[in-house]
Design a protein around this nucleic acid. Sequence first.
DNA 1: TTCATTCTGGAATAATCGTTTCAGAATGAA
DNA 2: TTCATTCTGAAACGATTATTCCAGAATGAA
Lengths: 192, 192
Amino acid sequence: MARCVEFNEVEKIEKAMNVFWEKGYNATSMQDLVDAMQINRSSLYNTIGDKHQLFMKCISNYFDNAMQELKDKVANETSAKAALIKVISDKADWIISCDKGCLGMKTIFEIAPDDCTVRNVMSKNNDIFIEFLATIVQKAMDDGEMDDSEDAALMAEYIATSFTGWKQSYILNGNPIKIKKMSEFLIKNIFK
Amino acid sequence: MARCVEFNEVEKIEKAMNVFWEKGYNATSMQDLVDAMQINRSSLYNTIGDKHQLFMKCISNYFDNAMQELKDKVANETSAKAALIKVISDKADWIISCDKGCLGMKTIFEIAPDDCTVRNVMSKNNDIFIEFLATIVQKAMDDGEMDDSEDAALMAEYIATSFTGWKQSYILNGNPIKIKKMSEFLIKNIFK
DNA sequence: TTCATTCTGGAATAATCGTTTCAGAATGAA
DNA sequence: TTCATTCTGAAACGATTATTCCAGAATGAA
């Protein structure tokens, strides 16, 4: 009957995501996005929507990918303790390897405080992440690999907030050794 | 000989700072600033400079104030341990009480990754802050109030990065109890 | 008061912003 | 091939951006 969409939406979303990742929401212009996505302006507005809608899709895609990766990673480990160590040290490696900021943290500090829609999504995603971490922590406690005098949820939150702190440190100092040390310190701390 | 400036620069800088604090650098327009500062556009450009220069003055002023407050606070405590506890619990209270984001953290995540000038200033300020914390930690260690098997600088960094994590948590969840718990957890952790 | 100097208010600038519009090319069932 | 439909490319939109300019008011030493 009629012509149909000629581009793969997920693929385009990912290209847009990289631009937001690098520049942040406000500093990214529609021109930047159109250029990077290699898509027509009209097509963009017709199929995905405006800048804000596109951004929402980007952060959802960002989280979904990260969460899937995390789950796969954990599934490959034999114990809860090993899984936690893997997750923590991989996060440290990731922070060190990535010279851009972090789309998630950038969004939380730049956009979330003033944008209710964004804040709700980020908050929900964060809850899912923390809850997932908490189940592993709980398992480690149940298996006697970890001191269980502390609340598992608080422990998970403690781990997650540490990641944010590391990212801040790396943005400012760009010192990989410091990040490594802090991750080792965290691991030592939670298993002591 | 000639007419002289009729406004107090520091006072105006503080008004501008509040706007940046609330909206972030990119989302703040010169119009917003002119309105808030109650100053003429020309006067602004003539005496302070452009948006970026104004911003630099704002973050410097922000840090100087915070640092002075911190030093006063510490000076009023009798022991290094008491000072650390005071600093940590006050930070938790501050995070809870402030519904805006945090100018410092906002700047680090939004601007610092792509703006070398800003990054250098923030990095230097952060170093000063960490170093100051480290001296207190070291004193607590020397006085036997704290386990000295860990590096004081790492400990200071650990405390500072925790603050960032708490702010993230509070932006997303707005849960004061959680912040309180995390601050208690931190205090318990560093003195154990 | 005079007058060189400096500040002030508002208009003007050029560039860029996000978004819309529309003619025409591409599509694919009939 | 036909033709209704949908996508595409580029131009155009009005609003807003940061910044500059300039005429005139204010200033204060001479």
